[in-house]
Design a protein around this nucleic acid. Structure first.
Lengths: 150, 150
DNA sequence: ATCAAAATTGTAATAATTACAAATTTGTGA
DNA sequence: TCACAAATTTGTAATTATTACAATTTTGAT
């Protein structure tokens, strides 16, 4: 982790009382902006904190999301993913390799919606799906191979 | 179901060979635009098709989504939801009651993103979260009650 | 140093989803 | 009409992410 203090700062900024585990989890997210799953976070930290419980990781990540210190992504129907990058951006999931990437939004109001009367919108997430650069090339190569077979 | 033929038409339009089960499931989605879960679809149809298997519902809904005949929503981290409304719109999930509603997009290019070189975007979903009209009122009432207690 | 509140841990339970093999249905050519 | 292969459906068993919960540990105030 680059600096613990950044993690602590983020926690305090969002009203989460720091603890060894919370700092480690927040720090892991800030150092690994690849949208890790609960399991990934747990595996990544259990070496340095052998007593860490997976329940704590579940609870803490949920807490961070609730308080706004991290984003909770449901772009993957299998696992929930977490993101310490809380600035405005979209996400992309490759339908072939399953990788999740960040996407810049073209404009500021790119995720604007009209809320019905009385509704309060507190968060929004734009999820895109398709094929990443690598998988797109591979998929095209496969199609060509099929054509040659015939 | 209003008309079976509409369901059959939709299936054929997206290259899905119709069958009794597929027509029923497609028809159910088109009649129930409330973003039902697999379980809801299964329960809703098992009366009229007693032999229906839940595996078939899982497989068929996944197939419909793959072929583009329906949308697969992962806005609910518990259950996948399906939507026969394949026109451009956003979704809203109430953090209190869990209800999922449709939202109109403010503008046509409201979900535009810049794809990195080589990436191909095939779908996009805008998910909003917050409080629906009913729950928002209730949540405010609760806060007031808490204040009075103190 | 004591004690209550908060946080963490570990195990057991829950529930959505998938794997898979058997059974059924469909479509086609003889 | 019959035979047969391919496609579809079914039902059960397995998998796996997540949650519930009670016990333990840590923290912080007095």
């Amino acid at each position: 982790m680059k600096t613990q203090s950044e993690a602590i700062e983020r926690l305090e900024q969002f009203g989460v009382k720091p603890s060894v585990q919370r700092i480690a989890i927040m720090g892991y997210l800030m150092d690994n902006l690849v949208h890790p799953t609960v399991d990934t976070v747990f595996s990544g930290l259990s070496a340095s904190i052998p007593t860490l419980s997976k329940t704590t990781v579940y609870n803490t990540l949920k807490l961070l999301a609730q308080q706004g210190a991290a984003l909770e992504l449901t772009i993957d129907d299998k696992n929930v993913r977490y993101d310490a990058n809380i600035s405005r951006h979209a996400h992309f999931r490759c339908k072939r390799c399953g990788g999740v990437h960040d996407l810049p939004l073209v404009s500021f109001e790119a995720t604007a919606v009209k809320a019905p009367n009385g509704f309060v919108i507190t968060e929004r997430q734009l999820y895109c799906k398709g094929y990443c650069g690598k998988c797109n090339v591979e998929a095209e190569a496969e199609v060509e191979a099929e054509v040659e077979e015939a």
